[in-house]
Every structure is written in structure tokens, then in C-alpha cells.
């Protein structure tokens, strides 16, 4: 079986019931699968939750993950977004030091990454940034570590391009 490990984004729809999230989280921990991030919220149909899981594994492991997810009684549909074209977005909020000398520089960095300053305080900005996980990583790397006061990320959400639709 292939051993090359790759990052996959798995989208799934499941019954919006209490305990649904722990069934998925429990499956990953019980079987020793990686979770890079996991996001979940109800869809436009309140009876359904949509979950996006970012994981890494060989082809065989990813195949097992998809099968095991499908096996959960509450799971309605599972899609490995990496099987086709898709868009990935993640939201990050970063609070950075922005003292008088560096305020302009920080604003410029924010503009380059198409971020938005959403809170301004004495000595700090809070920047909102959306993009793929890579883009958010790149932004963090481009900042002086000492300037970062706090970060929070939502984890990736993904959606198929064009006709690739995950719906019941």
C-alpha cells in the first residue's frame, strides 16, 4: 500500500445532533488518525451539520478514514475534497504590537496580505486575514515573532469548485 503521506481535506454532512462531533473526534483518536483541524457548524438546513477535517495520511489511511467516517450511523455524506478541484479558506485573527514607530509598517504588511485591521488600540492592532492555511502561515512567518501578541485560527473550511456539490 502507498506510504506517501499527504494532506487531505475531508468534508462531511452529518445529523445535527448532540454528540455528533464527539463521534467523529472519538473515531480519529481511537484509530490513531491525525487531525490538523476540525471545524463544524450547522448548514442552511438546521438538521444537518457540515464538518471540515484536515488530516494527513497515506492513500490507504485516507481510504480507511473515509470508510470509517461513512460507517458512523449519523454521517450522511463524506467527500474527500482532494479528489477534485476545491477551494480552501481559513480565518485568522492576529493581535500584533503596533507602537508608534511600527504602526505604518504593520499596516503595510497587512495590506500586502490583503488583511484588514479590525481593532485599533494603544500599541496594538488586531488583523483579520482570510486565505488558505499556507497563506496564513506565510503571514505569520513574515511578522517579527516579538510583534505577535496573540493569534486565533478557525481551521480550514473547504468547498468543491463548480459542479462539485456536497448536499443531501
Amino acid at each position: 500500500m502507498a506510504t506517501q503521506s499527504a494532506r487531505h481535506i475531508i468534508s462531511l454532512l452529518m445529523e445535527n445532533e448532540s454528540g455528533a462531533l464527539s463521534r467523529v473526534a472519538g473515531l480519529f483518536s481511537a484509530r490513531g488518525y491525525n487531525i490538523e483541524s476540525l471545524t463544524v457548524a450547522a448548514t442552511e438546513d438546521q438538521t444537518l451539520s457540515r464538518m471540515t477535517i484536515v488530516t494527513t495520511g497515506s492513500e490507504a489511511v485516507i481510504e480507511q478514514i473515509i470508510k470509517q467516517l461513512n460507517k458512523l450511523v449519523d454521517v450522511v455524506k463524506v467527500l474527500d475534497l482532494n479528489d477534485g478541484k476545491f477551494i480552501e479558506r481559513e480565518l485568522m485573527l492576529v493581535k500584533v504590537k503596533a507602537t508608534s514607530a511600527f504602526r505604518e509598517e504593520m499596516k503595510r504588511m497587512c495590506d500586502i496580505f490583503r488583511g484588514r485591521i479590525i481593532d485599533v488600540a494603544d500599541g496594538s492592532f488586531t488583523i483579520e486575514l482570510t486565505g488558505s492555511g499556507n497563506k496564513l502561515d506565510a503571514f505569520i512567518e513574515s511578522l517579527d515573532k516579538a510583534a505577535i501578541l496573540e493569534t486565533v485560527r478557525t481551521g480550514a473550511s473547504g468547498i468543491g469548485r463548480g459542479d462539485r456539490i456536497l448536499k443531501v
Partner: peptide
């Protein structure tokens, strides 16, 4: 009957 049993340990 269980798809997850197929190719779990052996291809």
C-alpha cells in the same frame, strides 16, 4: 458487508 473491512490490513 462492511466496506471498512476491505483493504484495512491487506490490499
Amino acid at each position: 458487508i462492511d466496506p471498512a473491512s476491505i483493504s484495512k490490513r491487506v490490499k
